[in-house]
Design a binder for these strands. Sequence first.
DNA 1: CTCGGTGCAAAGCTTTTGCATCCGC
DNA 2: GCGGATGCAAAAGCTTTGCACCGAG
Lengths: 165, 165
Amino acid sequence: MKKDPKVEQTKKEVRALFTQYLENHKQRKTPERYAILDEIYSSKTHFDVDELFLKMKSRSYRVSRATVYNTLDLLVESELVKRHQFGQNTSHYEQAFGYKQHDHMICTHCKKVFEFCDPRVQQISNTMGSLLKFEVLSHSLHLYGSPSADENGHCLNCSISLQKL
Amino acid sequence: MKKDPKVEQTKKEVRALFTQYLENHKQRKTPERYAILDEIYSSKTHFDVDELFLKMKSRSYRVSRATVYNTLDLLVESELVKRHQFGQNTSHYEQAFGYKQHDHMICTHCKKVFEFCDPRVQQISNTMGSLLKFEVLSHSLHLYGSPSADENGHCLNCSISLQKL
DNA sequence: CTCGGTGCAAAGCTTTTGCATCCGC
DNA sequence: GCGGATGCAAAAGCTTTGCACCGAG
């Protein structure tokens, strides 16, 4: 496991931000909380609670699911992590620090998630906020679509045949 | 329970569409399925599975939750009902027939859901579909916001104090 | 008559909670 | 040392599944 200096730098920054948040909210700085934050910022993937829990377990870091849930709530609250609902059941999470605002395209074939950016989303948010008299705090725009096929009729994203839909 | 002629007309139309769907997909036309469709189109509110189940129970219509779940899948599939995820757990549903495309503003204070319409959503969908090479089948845009307060500091939507947030 | 649909209850899965223990402050 | 945080397991909430029976085609 070689350390990417850029990733390490980011981790350092988010740890500092988390510390600040914990102090401001009179919350304890437990090793578990930092371990979870670190694990999340070790790769840029989207993940769900169980994936994170198992990943930490596989690294022999002993945390309970309850703590993972608790800490994720804190991280969402501190805006270091974003929570999403792509499917119908489990929540998905992603890093929030250092990312510019973006939304998601979900492949209905292989469930992969792609990010995109469109300034018009912010414009809509502004327009509707003032029209409906809301201060818009967050938004989620999910586009669900079927992918283009390659010359063999396979999904461009996962290479599995699109015929089997 | 007086019958609104306009509502009855809509019910008739959706029953016909559902029949067509069931025939095309070689599915049986059971009384439960039509009863559930009717119940959904009896009022224009958003609802979750349990609300629908209890509403039918209170009308002494005997259905099981399993059938409600099954039928909702069919209705979503036939595009007579739309499924949404506003919070983190339960799915919410709404009528899809006769409604123009719209999105949702969710009040973070009282969880009420408001509808709005903005043609730019469709434009974003088109732009991103061609950019990412997806045929966009559906989308969901949710704006989460805190409501404006009235002169007493109460939520404009539900009249409960905003101080207790 | 056949086989898919239904009701009921049990199981499954994600998330929350209760409680004893631990440890940050 | 106090009180909040953790781990574990049990419970809770939403949804799915298994099975016997029913009824649409």
